Amino acid sequence: MIIRERQLLQSEIATLEELIHQTPKEDVIDRKSLEARKREVEAALSILNPPYYEPARSQLKFRGKPTVKSQGVYADFAASALDKYAKMIVVLGSDQTNELGSRGIIPDREEFKLMITGTLTGSFGFEIEEAPKERTLLPELSPVKAAMEKANLIMELSAGSSDDEVADAIADTSTRAVEAVRVFLEVMEIYDAVFAIELDGNKSLRFANVEQIKQTRERLKPENIIEGDADLLGKFEGTIPARRLFQFLSETPPEIIIGKIGSEIEDPSKINQFIERPMKIKVHTKQVGNSRPRYTLTRYEVIAE
């Protein structure tokens, strides 16, 4: 099942890369849409679990008031920044496979521990690596790396992309995980620091100034992310079980809704038994700023005809 899903995602990435290559640079909207979808598929691919992997690594670099040229960094800032970065990765990592409440114990937190393996010269910073696991059989793609990439993606898009692109990035991310990202950014703002995060594969994130960090944090505040639940009447028009996607024609108002099938529904393929039949569904909605709502299907039932 996982191998088949990986193949589908890899095939979609190859198709998207070809479409991006064929799309003229002046078609900015089309290119951004394709690139956003490619990032989303790559993130989905990165959390699947085949047999072995290299530990995740990153470089966290700082500039600004807490740093003293390339000599060092103030201890109170470094302790706070590293603590919030580590917590951000733990929460985002656990959020990949668990439903996180607003508080309480974070499941599987031991799986996402980080360690400092060295310091960097130039703009002062740290080399960070995923802590060794006791198990000998591990997934090919590190869940820690997936969490690091997710953190970078959320911050990168929140720094300058459209509300719709940010909404796509956090559509499957819990409120608690988004808050962990915001808290990390808040530390940078409080200490008047600027940072960059470099990951394997030349995937880097870089902020130019503290004002940019502040604006990014503001976009992730709870007041800008509207969530809710809604009951809808209508008919399913189709699903893609392997990608956990559904299409639904709502009656009031008449509207075609495309969304994701939540983890509450164990077997998405069963929905195909009810295509074009009157249904009542419950969806969780998420909207960032002025973006279109993102829908996650959490329950469905047949209406007697």
Rank of each mutant, 00 (worst) to 15 (best):
L8Y: 09
I197H: 04
A43F: 12
L157Q: 05
I240A: 02
V288Q: 05
A180D: 03
I261D: 06
K113R: 15
Q273I: 10
R206A: 08
L157K: 02
K84C: 02
G160Q: 07
L220I: 04
S263R: 15
R182S: 11
S158D: 04
M88V: 03
F236S: 05
V91H: 00
L199E: 06
A180Y: 02
K260E: 15
M188Y: 06
K221P: 00
G101E: 06
I190D: 01
E130W: 03
P132L: 06
R277N: 11
E211P: 04
G72Y: 09
Y300D: 06
P241R: 01
P278Y: 11
F195G: 00
F195A: 03
I258P: 06
M279A: 13
P278I: 11
T216S: 03
N152P: 01
N98K: 08
A169R: 03
E130A: 06
A196N: 04
S11A: 15
T67I: 00
I226S: 07
Q212R: 05
I106S: 05
L120G: 05
K270V: 12
V181K: 05
Y191V: 03
F207M: 02
D172F: 07
D192Y: 08
L100Q: 05
V288E: 01
L19V: 10
A86S: 03
M1G: 13
L16K: 02
F112H: 11
G118S: 10
G238A: 07
G238F: 09
F62Q: 02
E305F: 11
I258A: 13
I29F: 13
E18L: 14
A78S: 13
A131L: 11
P241N: 02
E140R: 10
S162K: 06
G201E: 05
R277C: 08
T67N: 02
V181D: 01
S158Y: 01
L233G: 08
I240R: 04
K61A: 14
L233F: 08
A208T: 03
P24L: 09
